Simulated scan of single mutants.
Amino acid sequence: MAVQDGLKNRGYERKDVNERFKAVEELTGERLTELTDYTFDPSIASKNIENMIGVTQIPLGFAGPVQINGDLAQGSFIIPLATTEGALVASVSRGMSVITASGGSRVRVFEDAMTRAPILRVDGIDHSVKVIEWISKHTKEIDEVVSSTTNHGQLMDIEAFPNGRNLHLRISFRTGDAMGMNMATIASEAICRLISKETGAVTVSVSGNMCTDKKPASINLIRGRGKHVIAECRVPKDIVEKKLHSTTQAIVELNTRKNLVGSAMAGSMGFNAHAANMVAALYIATGQDPAHVVEGSLCMTTCEDVDGDLYIAVRLPAVDIGTVGGGTRLPSQQAALRMIGCLGDEKARKFGEIVAVTVLAGELSTLGAQAAGQLAEAHKQLGH
């Protein structure tokens, strides 16, 4: 069997996977038996990967427990984290112990919309105006087209961004408990066909990069994409000193000079210590698309001195997650989602709250360690 059977013959019987594996061993001249130790039926992964030859395993640990006081995530949680970076789970666990000792974290999902942004070619300014006016006057027809493509998606908004003979449309959808990128793409293609038919605008691509998917972008930082979540905690002064071995004033100053001023000096779109660490570990554990760590890194961490206590918050404007479909079909990832009560329908917003609190815990712990001069020692002991 050819190694690159691709989509033509996906071949997810175990014998097909084994044949491809043997072919790869022959082509590379290497023994690769470490890739063949897995327990699930390969057919489960038929919608997740092509040319499957085995499994790459990543260590899974847990952080917590952590007290979460969300709208949907309420109570004490154990958080699954998959990583190869020593000290990360220990650091997040320390942050969670501080949050729990402080009464928990308040967290809320403020917005929830997946976006796709087609690019249309128009004849010029006047044509752009006509297309934009047509869209605003025919929302009912557009809604009907969207409904014909999905039982779960719902059109929320279409924003127009004209530029010369280019007309970008940033289309927002509610996508239920799926991350929703495929749903948004299919619905956007149907919208573009209708617009092209009625206005003469030519669809160049269903994605014109104003979505913006899997790339750092100011539009996601400002307007959000996926779930826009904020988590906060007020840590009493004595807990800061006892558990973080620092002071409120030192952590506030560090956050301002490092996360805010330092990030601005670097031209960064992420104003945080290491939010991507927690996002990546939780996404990999639970079957999310790891590329969406890019959007997860667009986090802003703020700290304030409130009557001597430390107020800390994280704003994550682009948390792209799902609790159905995609990688959540895989057995290990389903187990991780069950650990936090987030597998299946009506769970995605709850999961978004948990993501934000996990990031908050990691930020709190790392800022505390840096303010106390402990970061290098922790990595020397646990991660070297």
Rank of each mutant, 00 (worst) to 15 (best):
N9Q: 14
N9S: 14
R10N: 12
Y12L: 11
R14V: 15
R14N: 13
N18Q: 15
T28W: 03
T28G: 08
G29Y: 03
E30S: 06
L32P: 09
T33E: 14
T39L: 12
T39W: 05
F40S: 05
D41M: 09
S46K: 06
K47G: 10
P59V: 05
A63M: 08
P65T: 04
I68D: 04
T83L: 12
A87C: 14
L88W: 04
V89M: 10
S91G: 12
S93F: 05
S97I: 00
S97K: 06
T100F: 08
T100N: 10
S102Q: 09
S102T: 12
S105H: 06
S105W: 00
V107E: 08
E111L: 14
M114P: 00
T115K: 13
R116I: 09
A117K: 05
R121F: 09
V122W: 02
D126A: 15
V131R: 02
I135D: 08
T139H: 12
K140H: 11
E141N: 13
E141S: 15
E144S: 15
V146I: 14
T149L: 09
E159I: 08
F161A: 07
S172K: 04
R174P: 02
A178L: 06
T185W: 04
I186S: 13
I186R: 13
I195A: 05
K197Y: 14
G200E: 14
V202C: 00
S207M: 15
G208K: 04
N209D: 13
D213Q: 08
D213T: 14
K214C: 13
A217W: 07
A217C: 13
K227D: 14
E232W: 03
C233Q: 08
R234Y: 10
V235D: 04
I239K: 06
E241N: 07
K243Q: 15
L244Q: 06
S246R: 02
V252N: 02
T256E: 14
T256V: 11
K258D: 15
G262C: 11
A264F: 02
F271P: 04
A273C: 08
M278T: 07
A285R: 01
Q288I: 03
G296W: 00
C299S: 01
C299F: 01
M300F: 09
T301I: 07
E304Y: 04
D305E: 15
A313W: 00
V319P: 00
D320I: 15
G322R: 03
G325L: 09
Q333A: 13
Q334E: 11
A335Y: 03
L337C: 00
I340M: 14
C342F: 01
L343G: 04
K347E: 08
G352D: 03
I354G: 02
A356L: 12
T366G: 03
E377V: 12
A378W: 03
A378E: 12
H379Q: 13
Q381D: 10
H384I: 04
